[in-house]
Amino acid sequence: MWTFIAKRLLSGLVLVAVISTLAFLLLYVGSGDIARHILGQSATAQGVAQKRAQLGLDRPVLAQYLTWVEHAVRGDLGQSWFTGQQVTQGILDRLDVTLSLVVGATILSAIVSVVPGVAAATRGGWIDRTVQVVTMLGFAIPGYLIALALAIELAINLGWFKPTGYVNPGTSIAGWLGTVTLPILALSAGGVAGVTQQVRGSVVDAMRRDYVRTLRSRGLPEQRVVFEHILRNAGGPALAVLAVQFVGMFGAAVIVEQIFAIPGLGQISVAATQQGDIPMVMGLVVVTAIIVVLVNLAIDLFQGWLNPKVRLS
């Protein structure tokens, strides 16, 4: 078990290293004359050269990269070129907001998907057809359209929720719920659809397995066969989809945060992108990769617990 965790951690580490290296090369080498870009076309050549030296951009790429790595492993992702803010601090200040949305939506997806998925697979008939149509729509309609619809209907027209802004849960739990409910609903629509479809599919698949007949032949009640054996075997593929959905939601949060004016990573991502604030973009990429790796690790461990074969491979 420990070697399993160590292996996964190591491969995750390699993944983060490769992503950050690639991102560094693309961002720093691909951006052209960064100092000129920061200062604008009117700046003097001397000013540009000065800026370049100040940012360390006159050094060879490898040296720049090594410096970046050296700082990064100590948790220092550099300084924003435009606001002068520490990137690590800037991201950490907003990470909790985005994570609360995405993790909330992931948990909601996991919980909400099981019952309709199992019901569709075991009951069939109109339940199955309804679940299939609804999940397909949830999958097909872009999440931001759902977010816009929710914002207009429930927040602006009906006034049930605050249309914009964010209240820290430390300040007021009710206020926090009022601001995050709609974004979480919007984010989880696609997740619920995807995971429900997978739960339905893998339960249908598991029910056809030979061992199900054998378990029934031993006199086990139907509920026990479904909820203990079938669901456990169907859990693996559903979790894999949940992991993919998490990555998708993390990206979708950028747009959803924009719609609900929530001060999360989305806002600084869009701002940094528009300005060409390379250290900030770089930091965002690395932090995102780390989070995805950690979530995948957690899901892998859960998979290993569900299915003993995974542990050994």
């Binding site: 990206g251 950028v254 940094a272 992108t273 060409g276």
Partner: peptide, 16 residues
């Protein structure tokens, strides 16, 4: 697949 598509596109947008 480890990077959310939008995040990667934002990074690319910053360069290109």
């Amino acid at each position: 697949m480890a990077l959310p598509g939008i995040v990667a596109l934002l990074a690319a947008r910053a360069v290109i």
